[in-house]
Amino acid sequence: MSTVASSSPSARRWDELQHTLQQGPCVDAVWADDTYLAKDLAHDPRWPQWSPRVAAQGAGSVLAIRLASPDETLGALNMYADRANAFTADDVDLALIYASHAADAMSTAKLLTGLRIAVKSRHHIGIAQGILMLRYDLSQEQAFDTLRRYSSQTNIKIRDLAELVIETRGLPDLEILERGDPTRDHDADLPDSSAQESTSTG
């Protein structure tokens, strides 16, 4: 788990300490029960390493709630109060309703972000295909097959390889890629045997 957002440096620090120690209400809210309320952190025995340390830093109580979509557990929302016994039954109800709305918003945002990345990647792959088609006189399918083979041989994601092709206007040399230096003159490059093989299957 990793802390990706916080309203204050203290909240981030208290969350991150749970990940370091592998104990605390946030960790348990994700892996055990859905909701944990610690009314008085200075006297809560459930997380013996974490609670005293955050209590000494000013955390009085905490409410941790699992956030989940229908498909997956997203993480945990951790609400801290400066004083002990701060969270009333009404606070807990409000927090649970809020968490439900937050999970919906996060799930939607994650999906939208993923779709944007996918659309952008597909666009770059299309440009890279066009470059390979022109440069090596390949069909659309052969150009994609070449990208796929290079990606497989070099263990570089196809979207990253497409960006390299766009940047260098050709197929990066496999040896150069292995050395981690994709910049070189590609004027003399020809499609390698994998591209030639793809011609026969295209």
Partner: peptide, 10 residues
């Protein structure tokens, strides 16, 4: 009651 809040992603 919430004074600070953090979100941890799985």
């Amino acid at each position: 009651a919430c004074d600070h809040c953090a979100f941890s992603l799985r």
